[in-house]
Design a protein around this nucleic acid. Sequence first.
DNA 1: CTGAAAGCGCTTACAG
DNA 2: CTGAAAGCGCTTACAG
Lengths: 326, 326
Amino acid sequence: MATVSNFLNRPQLVAPNTGSRIDEAMRQLGYVPHGAARQLAAGRSRLISLVVLDLANPFFLEVARGVEDVASRNGYVVTLFNSDDSPTREQHALQAIEELRVSGLLISPVGAHSTMIGRVRADGLPTVLLDRGGSKSEGCSVAVDDHSGGVVAGEHLIAAGLRRFAFVGGSTHLQQHRARLRGLKAAMRGAGIADSDLIIVREQMSVAGGLRAGEELLARSRGPIGVFCGNDLLAMGVERAVLTAGRRVPDDFAIVGYDDLTLASTTAVPLTSIAQPMYDLGSTAARLLIDEIQSAGHQHERVQFKPQLIARDSTPATDRPGAERH
Amino acid sequence: MATVSNFLNRPQLVAPNTGSRIDEAMRQLGYVPHGAARQLAAGRSRLISLVVLDLANPFFLEVARGVEDVASRNGYVVTLFNSDDSPTREQHALQAIEELRVSGLLISPVGAHSTMIGRVRADGLPTVLLDRGGSKSEGCSVAVDDHSGGVVAGEHLIAAGLRRFAFVGGSTHLQQHRARLRGLKAAMRGAGIADSDLIIVREQMSVAGGLRAGEELLARSRGPIGVFCGNDLLAMGVERAVLTAGRRVPDDFAIVGYDDLTLASTTAVPLTSIAQPMYDLGSTAARLLIDEIQSAGHQHERVQFKPQLIARDSTPATDRPGAERH
DNA sequence: CTGAAAGCGCTTACAG
DNA sequence: CTGAAAGCGCTTACAG
């Protein structure tokens, strides 16, 4: 028994021919190690958990792909949870994760200050925050500079000649969208445009939500107006609503999305969008997490990527390519 | 210790005031049960696993949502795996699942006959096949009638006056797409149209794949042609390619997608598509699985839903509403 | 209704 | 390099 265990965990300690005998026996008996027993005895697991805000958004799927790739390359299996932006669901997931005694946690948190996450971290579980900055002292985090994304979007619209704006975002507690909105406002301020020239619409973050937001904008504005959306799904809905109403994109409604999903280029009028390194976000986070789990000399890092504007037909052409700034 | 355990697992055996003392103590100590130890001692877990063909496809996300809802309502946590249509990845997932000693498995298998799945079932793990029929003797399965979906799509295109066709699908081993293609062929035969009037294109099942397929079709056909796509992502790409080339939808290229994603109605020309009850697929499968896990008198079931045609602008109008047939 | 005891299937020092 | 022994944190009959 102990030799079998050694063979599984530290094969170099077992004589080669003993090893092959064990190997054959295991194969014949169809032996599959009991994960829970291994974990209980060894005191650690090869599990890491990923909790994501919204699996229906392709953004997080790409992130998950990045996580999964580096995890499996390092021998970890990742259990995926979808909090669906609900604090209750997040808490359920976190509880399941605590009981699983995973080795590490990757989470894109619902609220600003989750007591559960604080507790989990205090218990010593290696945790990296995803798509959300945090203070380096508390642990690693990997995010994209949302404020800068908002500035880039705003400056692009301003360079295109727009003077009135709308922001379409998810619920107010969504930090990412709040920062993007702040960025837009900063750009407006930089151009001497008053806050009163900005309409803010909150909607469920989906194509359907974007359709509703678009209808609201149609009712509240004659255009021309620059519409900055918190994600591409919303932007797709807004564009659809505008076109269905017989208004023009970009002439009446100039639209900038966020995430630059593959889908963004397949709409009737291909969308200008703010690209984020989604896969890299996930793979970098996983890399940091595994380093924290495995190496004693681990140093917390706070990684922040810069977003990039991809100009397409949903905004008027400008001279200076927006993608280059910032 | 034993009383604590009883309190956790069978509270009715513990005196109320002992119970509340335990409760308070657990809270103060921040006690979290050790899942692996529980599982090892009890010999069972509250885990079920879901292995899905392609998480990047919103279809499976909706399915997963259905699964997740009924699972959590019954106290199970579901671990989600993405095989990405790769036999290797599927096998890795299945191995991780075996080691986890989950209580049940929901899987949309990559190939036709997976030896791993056969072995898992032979080992007595309750397993229901998702989106894939199977013989009732082997276990439960929940699927949608893909052949009928192909017939409905074909008859709709024929009723719209098309006489030449194309099928755009994923790789040949994908059973679902094969059955849909067979359905299309059956409809063509029923209308006396020769197989030689059918072009078949295989592509990666994404918008990008659809773009490539669309370009190939543009090169090989002047239209009018009826294009039946294995899923909406492909259809979105095909439509985009056709419109970009300056050809008309539905006049030159009539397009039918599959899945009826929300996205299908947001393209430049809203897509006609074959709708599947995605959420119900998942929730029904989970219900059957939990029944098999929990009730001794479980009877295997083979559930098959019927798909439904949703006519939009990417196909010419017909007199008889396609959705009513079949 | 409550406590002492064995055992779930492994891993890990520890002697040989 | 290999085998006997304790122990991981629980659950489950089993006596009290």
